[in-house]
Amino acid sequence: MKIKSFDELSSLELDTLREIGSIGTGNAATALGQLLEREVRITLPEVRIMGYNEAIDWIGGPEAVTAGVLVGMSGQMSGVMLSVQQLEFVNLVLETMLGVHINDYAELDEMHQSTLIEVGNILISTFINALSGLSGIAVSLTVPGFAVDMQGAILAVPMAMYGGTSDYLMTIGGNFVCDKKQVPCHLLLSPDVRSLNFLLAKLGVAE
């Protein structure tokens, strides 16, 4: 049976998506570890189906400023994938790769920004490659977009995309752990409902 809305997913389907999240985030962590030349682990990935206002509370409030890298997906699967980079993560990347530390996003110059975009792009592409290899779904990705702004507005991008069909936002993703410290960098995959059905069917779990 095809689902019409994210809140209709069965527990088997949710487990499958969690597994996708685990493999995707795991691969992304390995890529990040190679970039930073240190060990990066992941926290237990989560699949969340949230109402709009709930999603914004979950990520840490609407007005908190974060950096976001966004990549659009098309091909056999459409939707967006976001890398929401909070300040701790930004500093982990900038300190390791460029040797600079920032206290506020306003200090980001062009070099810093393109570093963050590239890291975000690598994390997202690695995640999607893993998903693609696992399911045999061909996904093409757009050039990444970058914004530093209130995270409520960043998270509203996938919400607005599916707002016409769903009152919920589904995200698959996890956080990184580096030097035993949790570094918040939410990797969020938000496919649309049609793509989600296709993915579940490809993986053989659509009921």
Binding site: G68, L70, V71, G72, M73, S74, S78, V80, T142, V143, P144, G145, F146, A147, D149, A153, I154, A156, V157, A160, M161
Partner: peptide, 15 residues
């Protein structure tokens, strides 16, 4: 009515 991300292609459009 802002456009948060400048992304070419894909299914984003300018909502």
């Amino acid at each position: 009515g802002a456009k948060m991300f400048e992304v070419n292609g894909g299914s984003l459009g300018n909502i």
